[in-house]
């Protein structure tokens, strides 16, 4: 019988710890499929964040390092400078990347570090139980913005792709979503291209994935997908910001 659906080799055969309906798992699968398709599992080194994905070193079959909160781009820089011929990626949440680790991501991009970042924007701190993230939308209720995020008090959410795309060292910058099949397909294409951009040595590449956190958003998984469509995409427009035309 023909196998039409199987676990990518780059994913370890264990069940993941993510909440039901969380899209972290989808993105893991996409990254693993890309690693398989590019045949780079043996030459890839990944860096795990601090956040719900802190132990995804258990899930990827390639060599992995676990970094301190927000420091994954610096750790990845160290790895890549030792092994310029290998593929190095970070996987980071929005608290990790856009709050505590802002300096590290900006400067890794500015240096044109030949690494790839998979950036999970779920507009909230998942792991620490739903606090406001730098990406939390205006009006969004979180455990630390219980009256809704108010610009006059908490300022405005950061659009990471728009910001990083101003840096010359950032070669490929794209925002995608995984809230439906069509978008999942696009997301995979973008992740694949980001890895290829690294392989070609163009510079830093990042894919921001709009992701769900039904647990801390306090809604069911189906509504969470709809919330991405209705609330997140209008503020975080999907698309390529840089490097769409790069030959890979």
């Amino acid at each position: 019988m023909a196998v039409v659906f199987d676990r990518p080799h780059a994913l370890v055969d264990v069940s993941m710890h993510y909440c039901p309906g969380c899209t972290h798992g989808i993105v893991h699968r996409l990254v693993a499929e890309v690693i398989d398709e590019l045949n780079i599992e043996g030459t890839t080194i990944g860096v795990s964040p601090v956040g719900c994905a802190y132990n995804n070193y258990l899930y990827f079959n390639c060599d992995m390092q676990q970094a301190a909160h927000g420091r994954a781009p610096a750790v990845a820089t160290g790895v890549k400078r030792v092994h310029p011929d290998k593929v190095v990626f970070t996987y980071q949440g929005d608290g990790d990347l856009a709050a505590i680790g802002t300096a590290e991501i900006v400067h890794a991009a500015a240096r044109g570090e030949k690494i790839t970042t998979v950036f999970i924007n779920n507009a909230i701190y998942g792991m620490t139980s739903g606090q406001m993230a730098p990406t939390t939308l205006v009006g969004q209720v979180t455990t630390t913005s219980p009256y809704g995020r108010k610009p006059e008090i908490q300022g405005y959410p950061i659009r990471v792709c728009e910001m990083l795309s101003t840096l010359t060292g950032a070669a490929f910058v794209e925002r995608v979503s995984v809230h439906d099949i069509k978008n999942i397909r696009n997301a995979k294409k973008a992740i694949k291209k980001a890895f290829q951009v690294q392989q070609k040595g163009y510079g830093f590449s990042i894919v921001e994935v709009l992701s769900t956190c039904p647990t801390n958003w306090g809604i069911n998984p189906v509504d969470a997908m709809k919330w991405v469509q209705d609330k997140m995409i209008p503020y975080y427009p999907l698309g390529n910001f840089k490097g769409a035309d790069l030959e890979v």
């Binding site: 080194i45 301190a68 420091r71 610096a74 790895v79 030792v82 092994h83």
Partner: peptide
């Protein structure tokens, strides 16, 4: 060899983490 001027001491020590973890004398 490779010299990197980091953006901060925080970044420098974490680059060291990555490089050491990748097997380099650093």
């Amino acid at each position: 060899g490779t010299f990197v001027q980091a953006e901060s001491e925080v970044a420098a020590i974490n680059m060291l983490y990555g490089a050491s973890g990748a097997g380099a004398r650093c």
